[in-house]
Design a protein around this nucleic acid. Structure first.
Lengths: 159, 159
DNA sequence: GCACAGGTTGACGTTTACGTAAGCGTTGAC
DNA sequence: GTCAACGCTTACGTAAACGTCAACCTGTGC
């Protein structure tokens, strides 16, 4: 009948779930938390294109690590005044803050990685001293040995 | 009396808490979970140097993002046989896995940062079109304006 | 008339790492 | 003598984001 892409098209909960790989429970949960507000047809939820967009925004927010309540705040801002430049400015601020926080988080992770790598190196060294046979990727050592036999010393120096 | 650094020195819960910026509740919690097992003097906990080291390992594990149960596994491995090379090998494996997971996590964060930055740029652009006065860090714009007046065009090109 | 698919509303369960009392004992300072 | 500081145990509370029932309704095809 009607073109499924026409803007007045509506969606069932499952359609959106399939499209965005979410669960009905999740969408209902978002509604519970005030992030969505689909129309009803009797009891059944009926999602409009606007709802779909909101859902997209929610999921995007989640991807960048915003909490549902933060996402809600942003969504509310847009609702108050869809054209409000002030709201855009606040969103921008929020995004910037989040980006900064993420960079901090990434640096923390990098530190953790360094700490882990160092621990790995120490373990590897001691293991190599007492039980080289237990070292993972023994195949690499065979390569080294073969290289040695072949007189390709550079293979041991890494590149 | 005795040198506080002598190995037979013991610690109270609060001393360790102060040293490592933890709370008594946390140490008791770790004990509850089987990560620590301090001696008792009546009811009071008495931490030895070994306990202190364990606590250090616990906190290090936390810093790199291991869960308490994972940390516990590792500590248990060391306990079973303090010299066991096999256990070292398993720890090494665990660390490697964690490092890999962390790198994945870091990449995810990087993606999120990119997504956020793009959103920021879009917002900034549209805001600049409709309400440039709301743009954050208006001071920079004043700088640009001043640079323009001064004929220093390169200041606008960044660097 | 009935199973079946898919919708609904509660409401409790899960996980992690503690926080936060409540209630009580011990010790040292004043 | 008593108050503060510290310690103990037991146990409920918290936060996030849903998962997982249970029990019920409802339209459809056969």
């Amino acid at each position: 009948m009607a073109d499924l892409r026409r803007p007045e098209r509506t969606f069932t909960i499952r359609q959106l779930c399939n499209e965005f790989k979410a669960t009905p429970r999740a969408l209902r949960f978002y509604e519970d938390k005030g992030l969505l507000n689909p129309a009803r047809e009797g009891l059944n939820r009926v999602y409009s294109h606007k709802d779909r967009v909101r859902l997209q925004l929610i999921l995007r927010g989640k991807r960048v690590g915003l909490s549902l309540s933060e996402i809600r705040e942003l969504l509310d801002l847009y609702d108050e005044n869809d054209q409000g430049a002030a709201q855009m400015a606040r969103s921008l601020k929020k995004f910037r803050e989040r980006a900064t926080a993420l960079e901090q988080q990434r640096d923390d992770i990098d530190s953790a990685i360094v700490e882990l790598r160092e621990a790995c190196d120490r373990l590897e060294k001691r293991l190599g001293e007492i039980r080289p046979d237990l070292l993972p990727r023994a195949a690499d050592y065979e390569q080294v040995l073969r290289a040695r036999l072949d007189g390709h010393a550079e293979a041991m120096l890494g590149k």
